[in-house]
Design a protein around this nucleic acid. Structure first.
Lengths: 168, 168
DNA sequence: TTGTCTGCAAACACTTTGCACTTTT
DNA sequence: AAAAGTGCAAAGTGTTTGCAGACAA
């Protein structure tokens, strides 16, 4: 991701903070910086796990000042954060799950079918294979998603707290 | 794709046909072989592309004898076919898409974001990587899914008929 | 002031379920 | 006859939308 690098003077932010980047994103599109959007980026940026819309909504309600945003606004803002390149969206068990994508290296996931936990990993080899396969099919790869499903160590040994079962 | 090969005598089916396998699956669970289930396996087995529940439903209606199954029955039977190991399910753009899994080699997909087409490929190297990554994380891999998104040759060159846009 | 954003309620797409009736065994 | 399956209509789930009032620029 080309970020912003000015070599010459003063405030050299090699990379904008996620907040800044989002505000820039909004401004360049004539969108407004509202209380809700500010709350949401703030919250999202201070929690680094994977989450879904519902969890974000709850998280906002539990905030010290109790300020919230409505469900539609949460969905709308999540979409903007994805557009802005701050979040990455993936679909798991029928619902959208988000993770940070700004300043984070490309990676993939191990998904435990017992406790639904996600473990990240990355593999350069994988990217190589991806590009090789794509070009072999006259395909222009824009990205990929690899999810390895199975059982994590905890779930394999029996002691685990199985969570929601995949609906889809 | 290896379906039925007989070496020695008479009808030695080293592998059952998909229909047989499904019937066995049903019988061993005290489930019944109904008109609808028969229609559905039959139809599914005679079409080798990826499809979703709605397409199957339509396909059944267009059948010469016009016999159908209801939407709930289609969904119920698809789930059974997945359990029986005949179909594999994946989620794309917010809906479940099915493909044959019985007697078919493990493979992954290129997904064109222009025309939504799916191209299959397989890579042994990928499976190697999968297993290496899994064991490195004390994870027991049960399977994986790799989807490489991008643009196919047709869509890249502009002339394409863009279809449904991803909802999710 | 202007035009965007929000929240509400309602709509959506896809999938699942409760239940009375039909079918297979 | 008994048990399982079907279809209908209705309920679910996660997400999106139309619109009037609220708010940022």
């Amino acid at each position: 991701m080309p970020l912003t690098s000015d070599f010459s003077l003063g405030k050299v932010d090699v990379a904008m903070t996620p907040r800044e980047r989002f505000e820039e994103f909004l401004q360049t599109r004539g969108k407004r910086i509202t209380r809700q959007r500010r709350m949401i980026v703030e919250h999202v940026c201070s929690h680094h796990e994977h989450f879904d819309a519902e969890q974000l909504l709850e998280g906002l309600r539990k905030t010290p000042d109790g300020a919230t945003a409505s469900r539609p606004t949460v969905y709308r803002t999540l979409a903007e954060l994805v557009d802005a390149g701050l979040l990455r969206k993936m679909v798991l068990g029928g619902r959208a799950v988000y993770e940070h994508d700004y300043g984070y290296p490309q990676h993939d996931h191990l998904h435990c079918s017992g406790c639904q936990s996600l473990i990240e990993f990355s593999s350069d080899e994988l990217v190589r294979i991806r590009d090789a396969v794509a070009s072999r099919h006259q395909f222009r790869a824009q990205g990929h998603r690899l999810i390895i499903t199975g059982l994590c160590a905890a779930c394999r040994s029996g002691r685990s707290k199985p969570r929601v079962q995949d609906r889809i």
